[in-house]
Design a protein around this nucleic acid. Structure first.
Length: 837
RNA sequence: GCCGGAGUGGCGGAACUGGCAGACGCGCUGGACUCAAAAUCCAGUGACGGUAACGUCAUGAGGGUUCGAUUCCCUCCUCCGGCACCA
């Protein structure tokens, strides 16, 4: 064995070995005792930094750890290869997105290999290639066939910088684009939607099944779906001889409605303008609101409105109330119309105050009385007793809510309804680098889906894809000119492409049968491997990707293509790696634009991949953000060097143990050896638990280091260093380290076993229950809760015996002599507390 | 405003179910080796007092429950994330 640890030399060797021996390849026929370990497939961008690395390293550790437990581990990788960055880069550098994307993939694969991160590459998928997007198009047709894909003319989110529309989920914060942070505006367009709202209730309910998802993610999805229960009421408008539907969660306030408000986009607005004597005033108000961007509208806190002059009948009280138009009512939620109850809704209250509209109190708080509406400083939104509410007077709102809903339903003026905040998923994009929507428009036959046998609809390569706001494909005659699959007449293709989140909503299924030319996946195979046992990725996908994937899985389940309705059984979201940014001066997520990236290349050159891996895992709990420190890497490197030396100095003991696997016999152990052996067993237990319990690799590694320090100390101070305990300790450390520093462990293992067998074929060490308690345990003794001394005992020492020992401890005696001992609290094997006065 | 999560040495972070706060690592200090440096090894390292034994204080702040609280409860402060004119 070589004296010093030479990472560069051994790492290349083992990377080749893993590839050649295909130890990460998994067969669909061996899926019993299966473990599907999945890392979110990345967008292939140019160069990876150590922040990206954390994600892949965690996945790799999990896969290797499970292998050591004898699982058939499926650990595939692929590329979310369609998308805007490649297209934008292409425009800037004049390289075709396909070329730059495939180049980036090549580079990234190389980097992953250098990190020692391994996958079953035989299953690689690339979403921008026709053999993949053919099935993305198939998925579209499936949804279309089931009435879950529809085209609709609507006000949609438009990003002026990306020059494309966006799904609601892609508009974040105060109305900015998820990708480029530009302010998003509204644009009326005819677009394709997936009917995710049909699945709102199931997407919400089934979150309860996901016990092993972070609560944070589930909460975010719950908020996003935004379920609220209430009543939909019909208000009659005489002028139009029609009813205005309006949703409320506060039917108990129906007697307090003093006006109605509709959104500026509400379809009724047009009709009102036609007949209103004040049409100019209304028109100019609506126009001034509509021309504002989402961002401007949202930042506007002052509510603005205009009276339409139209009067509406409250269906319960029969009162006539005015109809207003205001920007504080959103067309996107409920029906775009509200009943305003200024006394019991703060927004309505502010609006009423501004425009001097009446305020009518219908709920009195129990303990204090609201004197008069004129003196009200704010609305009363909480519960109370009904007043001015006809036959409901005196009822508590808990009761009246139900009674009033009954009344509404009995009189057929409305019905109980559930409303969701979730909107349908807009999937059309006016960009080039995506999967074409497989739809043909025929003058005779209308909208005709492309027959499955004609898939894929190939994305043409020679296209001028400068973003104009129109889809680039709409300028490619050879692409859009086609014949109708129904009547064979002249027809035109849809020229828009699909949101890349459609590509990524099903890729985890394609890994199972990546080369199947006749179907996206094989149902039996998929049912064997899925749900994914462990999904690993960034928190930024909490809503977008994870919600869409859950939706698509449920659709495929309903179509009987799969036998499971949730794709990911366990989800782990890792924290970001941060570093102080020289541009902002703050701690920021590692990114090129912040100028704070650390490239793995130089570090791997200097220390080796195992050192970088070890440090990345040791940096902190993996679910939390962490700050990168180049000095910290130094510590990891030192530890591996010390380990190497330890193994090379004790090579004979380890070989001896490995060749005989001799049982440790209590009677043959010296006390010091036994203490060390107990420590080894405790360490194995602790490490295993740290990993099983939330992937706490940081504490697992700390435990290995701690045991290693004890072992070093033992060897230094002992005469007998050729012992089986040392052999077993070292052999166990090698395997315990293997998931974290695989090249290192493989190399040592191969030297010690001479069998050319991979350490990943070995078994994870087991601990022996009989060796978890030390012979001598230190019992801390407290007096009145303060530590005053420590006595040595064994696990059999009784409370009384420990108390007797205390009387021999000078410092403890100091505190108990001349005192009355009121109480003795003994926690077996842990602590003794004496309460004295 | 609402809903999550967090706040512990000079730094990253440990602490099972309420039981010795600061594991492990970084940094720092001193020492050994060396002509010297690097590397390595050894010792020390929360603050204050003390030569020391030891004592007092200390887990964002303030209260409470308890023999005992980083851990449980209440009030408040700060930071991060999500949602937010959602009727």
């Amino acid at each position: 064995m070589q004296e010093t640890y030479d990472a560069a030399k051994i790492e290349k060797k083992w990377q080749k070995y893993w590839l050649d021996k295909k130890i990460f390849e998994t067969n669909n026929s061996t899926s019993e005792n299966k473990y599907y370990c999945l890392v979110m497939f990345p967008y292939p961008s140019a160069a990876l930094h150590v922040g990206h690395g954390r994600n892949y390293i965690i996945g790799d550790v999990v896969a290797r750890y499970k292998m050591l437990h004898g699982y058939h581990v499926l650990t595939p990788m692929g590329w979310d290869a369609f998308g805007l960055p490649a297209e934008n880069a292409a425009i800037k550098n004049n390289i075709h997105p396909k070329i730059s994307t495939l180049n980036n993939i090549k580079k990234m694969k190389e980097q992953l290999r250098e990190w020692g991160v391994c996958y079953d590459w035989k299953r690689e998928v690339t979403s921008c290639l026709p053999n993949y997007y053919k099935w993305t198009q198939w998925l579209f047709l499936k949804l279309y066939e089931n009435g879950l894909a529809y085209k609709n003319f609507a006000y949609v989110n438009w990003c002026p910088s990306c020059k494309t529309v966006l799904a609601n989920e892609q508009v974040i914060g105060d109305g900015v684009c998820e990708r480029c942070s530009s302010g998003v505006s509204k644009k009326p367009l005819d677009q394709w939607f997936f009917k995710i709202t049909d699945y709102a209730e199931r997407l919400l309910q089934d979150l309860d099944k996901l016990d092993n998802w972070p609560t944070r993610v589930k909460t975010m999805q719950r908020n996003w779906i935004g379920k609220s229960t209430g009543v939909e009421l019909n208000f009659f408008i005489e002028d139009f001889d029609t009813t205005l539907k309006c949703f409320t969660t506060r039917i108990d306030t129906i007697f307090g409605v003093t006006f109605m408000v509709i959104a500026p986009e509400h379809p009724l607005v047009e009709k009102i303008i036609e007949i209103s004597p004040e049409k100019e005033k209304i028109k100019s108000f609506v126009q001034s609101v509509m021309k504002e961007s989402e961002q401007e509208r949202m930042s506007e806190t002052e509510k603005r409105g205009v009276n339409t002059g139209i009067r509406i009948t409250n269906p319960v009280t029969k009162e006539k109330i005015p109809l207003w138009i205001s920007d504080y009512v959103l067309m996107g939620y409920g029906t775009g119309a509200i009943m305003a109850v200024p006394a019991h809704d703060q927004r309505d209250f502010e609006f009423a105050k501004k425009y001097d509209l009446p305020i009518k109190i219908v709920i009195q708080p129990k303990d204090k009385e609201i004197v008069s509406s004129k003196e009200m400083a704010a609305s009363w939104e909480a519960e109370g007793l009904q007043v001015n509410s006809g036959q409901f007077d005196g009822l508590h709102t808990d009761v009246s809510k139900d009674k009033m809903a009954d009344f509404v339903e009995e009189n057929e003026i409305g019905k109980r309804t559930i409303n969701y905040r979730l909107r349908d998923w807009l999937i059309s994009r006016q960009r080039f680098w995506g999967a074409p929507i497989p739809i043909i428009y025929c003058d005779k036959c209308g909208t005709v889906p492309v027959p499955v046998k004609d898939l894929p609809v190939i994305l043409p390569e020679d296209v001028d894809f400068k973003p104009t706001g129109e889809s680039p494909l709409s300028y490619v005659k050879e692409f859009y000119d086609t014949t109708c699959p129904k009547c064979n007449g002249k027809a035109k293709r849809d020229t828009e492409t699909m949101d890349t989140f459609v590509d990524s909503s099903w890729y985890y299924l394609r890994y199972i049968n990546p080369n199947d030319e006749n179907s996206p996946f094989n149902t039996d195979d998929v049912n064997k491997w899925l749900p994914v046992d462990q999904y690993i990725g960034g928190i930024e996908h909490a809503i977008l990707h994870l919600l869409y994937s859950r939706f698509i899985t449920k659709v495929l389940f309903d179509c009987k293509h799969t036998g499971f309705d949730e794709p990911f059984a366990n989800l782990f979201t890792q924290g970001m790696i941060c570093k102080k940014s020289p541009t902002t001066g703050k701690l920021e997520k590692m990114s090129k634009s912040k100028g704070n990236v650390v490239s793995p290349d130089a570090l791997i050159n200097k220390y080796g991949a195992d050192t970088v891996r070890l440090y990345t895992l040791f940096i902190g709990p993996p679910e939390k953000d962490a700050e990168w420190s180049d000095q910290g890497v130094e510590g990891a490197s030192r530890f591996l060097k010390r380990c190497w030396r330890m193994f090379s100095e004790n090579i004979d003991s380890i070989k001896e143990y490995l060749s005989t696997k001799k049982e440790i016999e209590d009677s043959l152990l010296s006390q010091k050896e036994k203490d060390l052996y107990v420590k080894l067993n405790k360490t194995v237990k602790k490490i295993t638990e740290s990993i099983e319990n939330g992937f706490h690799f940081n504490t697992a590694i700390a435990s290995i280091m701690e045991f290693f320090n004890d072992l070093t100390e033992y060897i230094r101070s002992s005469d007998n260093t050729a012992t089986i305990v040392i052999g077993k300790s070292c052999a166990n450390i090698i395997i315990l380290l293997a998931p974290f520093v695989p090249h290192f462990s493989e190399e040592i293992w191969s030297i010690l076993t001479d069998k050319g067998s991979s350490v990943f074929k070995a078994d994870w060490p087991k601990y022996d229950e009989r060796y978890l308690i030390e012979d001598i345990i230190e019992i801390p003794v407290q007096i009145n809760g303060k530590l005053r001394g420590v006595v040595s005992a064994t696990q059999y020492t009784t409370q009384e015996e420990i108390f007797e020992l205390c009387k021999k401890n000078d410092n403890i005696v100091k505190y108990i002599k001349d005192k009355i001992i009121k109480k003795k609290i003994y926690v077996p094997k842990k602590l003794l507390n004496l309460v004295v006065v």
